[in-house]
Design a protein around this nucleic acid. Structure first.
Lengths: 216, 216
DNA sequence: CTCGGTGCTGTGAACGCGCTGAGGACACCG
DNA sequence: CGGTGTCCTCAGCGCGTTCACAGCACCGAG
């Protein structure tokens, strides 16, 4: 367990408390030191303050994710504005607690993070020169912005989460379209057509009798 | 996306808001209905109220996890006590929001949950230098891609799951063809011929009077 | 060697999958 | 109330896929 916190008293309290729970705890007091430790330490999870000397918590997570490190991050901040929280999460944090926080809650959220354990995926999906940002709801192709409708976006989002895999029309109808409504499979073909016009003809491959596949 | 919430106004508001974000949303109004939907629906994630008729949100998650369902769960509750929150998380929820909540925060937390995907399992069948990937629907022979039609692919798939074993034409008709009664056994011979042309003459052995066998 | 049975393959026709343009239904907005 | 944009259905079409058919090759038994 890695604790990145510059306020010495809080850091020490966290370390003691977590050690009592059986965690092995390292502490870093600055942004750069925390980033370094997270890169090389092989930790199960990280507790990360936002206000740090040298490098903010936001930036730290962003860099970590950009370098393909996916360890669970619980962010701590004195800022309790809704946009602060949303920003922290969209930078790649997995959870966000505002100070002052309850120690009981911190532990429970830590357990939930560790339980899930599975490495997360990037905040921005990228396949080839296609990039899709779920938070900003934007898609670019070779750095040029592409405007998509809600349905087109949802369809591309779903396909980009499993690039290279063949996904059947039924599965797409189930997940991208509302399952309760009865939508004709042809709707999928229509929207694949729309996407092809906007993204390029050969980005979406048809696998006859099976489904569609996003070219990698 | 599954929303389990008995307060009709909130449920409707959530549904509308999430649909505007491009999610396909189903709503369940009672605990048992929500549990059923979560079991069978194949959802990406679930938003779950704690106070529900028939079955509490806590109990719902606990049962779901006991049944080995791991979809991400975001719990909603009017209770903001630290132990309520810890209980919810320890029952198996992945995140916990107290009412009233910010819609912006809800969305950000939902994105964080969805970012962590179920780990993908690469199941690739391999026999000799033949490789078949059911998910990507790709077949390679000595690292060279082979394009197959739907029927050819299904036939090879079935044979590669039992390499070396002799499989009768009737069995192939039953499993690779759906309406075995309507199709002549000769169709199998025809498709074995197609596969031989694409994969190499000696990959598929004929066992006269018994069936076919994939050379190991 | 002969002969019947079994499997192989070229031909061709019907089928149905997927693509597309047109247009209706609907919501939103000025 | 018309304009605009999105969503989705519908019908037609092109073409790849599927499969029956028939003739031929091959195998094994007598």
């Amino acid at each position: 367990m890695l604790v990145v916190e510059d306020e010495a008293r809080l850091a020490a309290a966290l370390q003691r408390g977590l050690q009592a729970e059986g965690f092995a705890v390292d502490v870093a007091a600055t942004g750069p030191a925390g980033l370094d430790a997270a890169r090389h330490g092989g930790y199960d999870a990280m507790i990360l303050d936002v206000m740090l000397p040298g490098l903010s918590g936001y930036e730290l997570v962003r860099r970590l994710r950009a370098e393909q490190h996916w360890l669970p991050v619980l962010m701590l901040s004195a800022k309790d504005g809704e946009y602060d929280q949303a920003d922290g999460l969209d930078c790649g944090a997995d959870d966000y607690l505002t100070k002052p926080f309850s120690y009981v809650v911190l532990l429970a959220r830590l357990r939930a993070l560790l339980r899930r354990g599975a490495p997360e995926r990037p905040t921005v999906l990228a396949v080839g020169d296609l990039r899709l940002d779920p938070a900003r709801r934007r898609v670019t192709r070779a750095d040029a912005e592409v405007t998509l409708t809600a349905r087109e976006f949802a369809l591309l989002d779903y396909l980009m989460r499993r690039p290279g895999q063949v996904i059947s029309k039924v599965e797409l109808l189930d997940h991208v379209w509302d399952a309760s409504l009865e939508t004709a499979p042809n709707a999928v073909e229509v929207y694949v057509g729309y996407l092809r016009r906007k993204l390029g003809r050969d980005r979406l491959e048809t696998v006859r009798g099976a489904g569609y596949r996003l070219a990698t």
